[in-house]
């Protein structure tokens, strides 16, 4: 169902962490480790967001594009599906499925503009070919749910309307991880509210207890988010570059 999460393909296709954290054999042969795999996906998330800013599409399109990219890498290797082509192609497809179509030539133009690195360059034709490969890899499941929609209402209910920007930013950051492939978006949203409560030193225990959700899951997601923030400080450009380098040159 298009907007009934409970009968959606999104819910049915959720994965376990162990299923997501699998480095494909072809990539392993290039020396790519699980850490590299995650770093490259993080790098590509940033790439998609930056490109999206330039072509002026909204956050939901970015979120859908990142979800597509992460879903594809649970099925296909980076060796076969070069991230530097897959990322903009996911944005291209997500823009269509979110009814905000962006022309491929516009993407190609901005890629050239914002990334002087030759390895990011791509042609319109390559994006169009990749679009079809993505459709296939996604098994044509295109409807993606995100935590954004229910956020304002939940925050208001929790008496945290003032924390909307903070929470929204945390939700954006969750796309730098694979959470959207593993957990239902409403739980991710609640975890973000939980993190925001912690950061704001607001005690929301009673409110959370009133929700009929598994608080253990919410807290675990929140811990992952906080862990991610801790680790992110240690990520250097060198590490990212080293990981990207293992992928080698395109073509």
């Amino acid at each position: 169902m298009a907007t009934n999460f409970w009968t959606s393909t999104h819910l049915k296709e959720l994965l376990e962490q162990e299923e997501v954290d699998v480095v494909h054999n072809l990539d392993k042969q290039r020396g790519i480790t699980l850490d590299d795999f995650k770093l490259i996906k993080l790098q590509m998330t940033n790439y998609i967001a930056r490109l999206a800013q330039n072509v002026k599409v909204r956050q939901r399109v970015v979120a859908t594009a990142v979800t597509y990219m992460r879903r594809v890498y649970t099925k296909r290797s980076m060796t076969e599906y070069d991230p530097r082509l897959l990322a903009p192609s996911c944005l291209y497809l997500a823009a269509k499925s979110e009814e905000s179509t962006v022309q491929a030539r516009l993407l190609v133009f901005y890629i050239k503009k914002i990334y002087p690195d030759e390895r990011y360059r791509c042609e319109i034709k390559e994006i169009l070919e990749m679009e079809m490969k993505i459709l296939e890899a996604l098994n044509y499941y295109l409807v993606v749910f995100h935590p954004y929609r229910s956020l304002p209402q939940l925050l208001q209910d929790a008496g945290m309307s003032d924390a909307i920007q903070l929470t929204w930013g945390i939700v954006n950051d969750t796309y730098r991880m694979d959470l959207i492939l593993i957990h239902p978006p409403y739980l991710i949203g609640l975890a973000c509210i939980y993190v925001a409560s912690v950061l704001n030193e607001k005690d929301n225990t009673a409110w959370f207890e009133d929700l009929r959700v598994d608080m253990n899951v919410v807290k675990n997601i929140a811990m992952e988010i906080l862990d991610f923030y801790d680790k992110q400080r240690t990520i250097s450009d060198e590490r990212v570059n080293a990981a990207m380098h293992k992928l080698g040159l395109r073509k």
Partner: peptide, 23 residues
């Protein structure tokens, strides 16, 4: 058909696939 203006899979096809895959 691939749309003539070189813009990939037609949005019409995307809409149709996306909805019919869920319902």
């Amino acid at each position: 058909k691939q749309s003539k203006d070189g813009d990939g899979v037609s949005p019409t096809a995307i809409r149709e696939i996306m909805l019919l895959r869920e319902i």
